[in-house]
Nucleic acid binder design. Structure first.
Length: 286
DNA sequence: ATACCGACCTGTCAGC
DNA sequence: TGCTGACAGGTCGGTA
């Protein structure tokens, strides 16, 4: 579900609302699928921590945690030798998968089906993770989390060209490969390729310098416009406040099979590449 | 190493 | 009304 713009929107919303708050206690549901770290480890890492910052890397939400001031005082008073704990820094990583939601709720509000984690905050609010399909993943890390790949909003044109050099895979598949660029998913791959005038099946290595220049530009442009619009809501994506994004109305190919290309009126075609629906204009994209 | 393909899950919607 | 199949923003592991 959520690609870079949706995850960015959620992370920004969460940061604005819960940074500075402290996680009081954590409840985790029975279903174990969404956990990459053991439940007990997630609970013990989160509880008592202050949320310093919420940000994004690729499609991962990163919650920076640090020991609460109360804990800090207690530890430094009791044991000078255990100063490592004093820092108490950790990261809580949330991947939303296809249908995951991380949102701030009022404590009394109804706990919807498929709620897998509830973190009670000192302010009285709750941070909840809901995920019907359970493709999402939760984990905690004591060292800096690195998902690999390059941020598409930071990649230089030289780096971008190098990513695809010698790759025989379809450019669409390469754009979806998170080890190369992190954060581009099915919607934004299709939208970027349409704007760059490149067919999704084109072998990455055969793209001209000019086409790569254009693609680099369009990936960036599409992602920025989507962030501006608060992401794309197809069926169940909502931001941290439970609001839908608006970028779906600006989609030029994704989900528009059979409808006219907005540039040349040719019907948009849908094919399957690497198991994913891929939409393109047979006239505009070469 | 590289590249498809099914599997992982639940929910929704179109068609019969 | 209800059944069936296709499909859904993502990623992983097995297989060629």
């Amino acid at each position: 579900m959520p690609e870079l713009p949706e995850v960015e929107t959620v992370a920004r919303g969460l940061h604005k609302r819960v940074a500075g708050d402290t996680i009081h206690s954590v409840w985790i549901g029975e279903k174990l699928q969404p956990l990459k770290s053991p439940a007990a480890q997630i609970v013990s890492t989160l509880e008592g921590k202050r949320i310093a910052r919420v940000h994004r890397a690729g499609k991962h939400i990163i919650v920076d945690l640090e020991g609460s001031s109360a804990t800090r005082k207690k530890i430094s008073r009791s044991r000078a030798g255990k100063r490592r704990m004093e820092d108490g820094k950790a990261q809580w990583i949330v991947h939303l998968g296809m249908t995951g939601q991380l949102m701030v709720s009022k404590p009394g509000s109804e706990v919807v089906r498929h709620t897998h984690l509830i973190a009670q905050l000192a302010s009285g609010r709750e941070l909840r993770f809901v995920d019907p399909r359970m493709f999402g993943k939760l984990s905690v890390h004591l060292d800096e989390f690195d998902p690999g790949g390059i941020e598409p909003l930071e990649v230089t044109e030289d780096q971008f060209r190098a990513l695809f050099r010698g790759r025989k895979t379809p450019i669409k598949s390469a754009l979806l490969n998170q080890k190369l660029l992190r954060g581009v998913g099915n919607i934004y791959a299709d939208e970027s390729l349409h704007r760059a005038g490149i067919r999704p099946r084109r072998q990455a290595a055969t793209l001209s310098r000019e086409q790569l220049h254009k693609l680099h530009e369009m990936v960036r442009k599409v992602l920025l416009e989507a962030i501006q619009a608060g992401g794309s809501s197809i069926s169940d994506y909502v931001n941290a406040d439970g609001e839908e994004g608006m970028f779906q109305i600006q989609h030029r190919v994704y989900g528009r099979e059979g409808e006219p290309c907005l540039r040349c009126r040719t019907p948009i075609r849908r094919v399957v590449i690497a198991g994913r629906s891929s939409h393109y204009c047979p006239q505009c994209q070469k």
